[in-house]
């Protein structure tokens, strides 16, 4: 038996009610430890695909496998996700927000706090354990949201436009932190974005989607010629612009057959 990928998606299509086809025959995979991005224009079905992979939404047809086990339509504990909305509960302190998932998993309060405390330093939130989300900046809240996911130790992290609302320097900062964390822990990441630069900088592989209906038009292996995970080094690699341009053209072509991989 061959080793299964962290995520495999086979022939996923989705139609909401009797509306138009939003996703049409999507096939993709993510290897364990790989960083995979989806780029595509707004409305092409990225979030729909995201929700299908998380198991929160059932596809109209097709299958989702997580670590080789079919999970179609039901959330898997191996997957954690982060959205643009931080979804922190305003009535809970940061600490109690971070341990939400552990509470649901019925980890004891003391043990949950111990596990969470170990992360606060790495996420630059030490000293804010007892603050409420309303007292924190957008960047800090987004870090807390990532912590809430990471503390439950999922193998696979899904992110949907997680850094869209942040200003540029903060976005770079959080992307760096993300890379450090996921690479050190060997996590698989599926990253959804409309931002080509972000996709090329972070990813090992990029899938390009087109809209109406959402279809994969291209799959690009990114090799920036560096082993470094540092955002700076990757962004300034000489190969960066070629990848950027390829994806730009691919999206611009909107799925005309000559650019389909």
């Amino acid at each position: 038996m061959t080793m299964s990928h962290a995520i495999e998606v086979h022939g996923v299509s989705k139609r909401y009610g009797d509306g138009p086809l939003v996703l049409d025959g999507i096939d993709f995979y993510a290897r364990s430890g790989e960083f995979v991005s989806f780029v595509g224009p707004s409305g092409c079905g990225k979030s729909t695909l995201f929700n299908i992979v998380t198991g929160l939404l059932a596809p109209s047809s097709g299958r989702v496998l997580v670590n080789g086990v079919e999970t179609t339509g039901s959330p898997s504990r191996s997957i954690g996700y982060v959205l643009q909305k931080d979804l922190l509960m305003p009535w809970r302190t940061i600490m109690r927000n971070v341990i939400l998932g552990l509470e649901v998993h019925r980890v004891g309060r003391a043990e949950a706090r111990r596990r969470a405390s170990a992360l606060f330093d790495a996420y630059h939130l030490t000293g804010h354990e007892d603050a409420y989300p309303g007292q924190l900046s957008g960047g800090m809240r987004q870090r807390a949201a990532l912590m809430r996911t990471m503390v439950t130790d999922p193998d696979i992290i899904l992110m949907d436009e997680a850094y869209k609302a942040l200003d540029y320097p903060l976005k770079i900062q959080l992307e760096s932190e993300l890379m450090d964390t996921v690479k050190a822990a060997g996590k698989t990441v599926v990253f959804v974005t409309h931002d080509i630069e972000e996709a090329v900088t972070l990813s090992d592989r990029v899938y390009v989607l087109k809209a109406h209906p959402g279809q994969l038009v291209q799959e690009i292996e990114i090799d920036l010629g560096t082993d470094s995970h540092a955002i700076n080094e990757r962004r300034l690699a000489s190969a960066f612009n070629d990848y950027y341009e390829t994806i730009w053209r691919s999206i611009g072509a909107g799925g005309r057959t000559e650019v389909a991989a």
Binding site: P75, R77, I79, L83, L100, G101, V104
Partner: peptide, 10 residues
Amino acid sequence: DLLDLMRSFG
């Protein structure tokens, strides 16, 4: 979305 988050935690 908050309820989805709860559901994703199982």
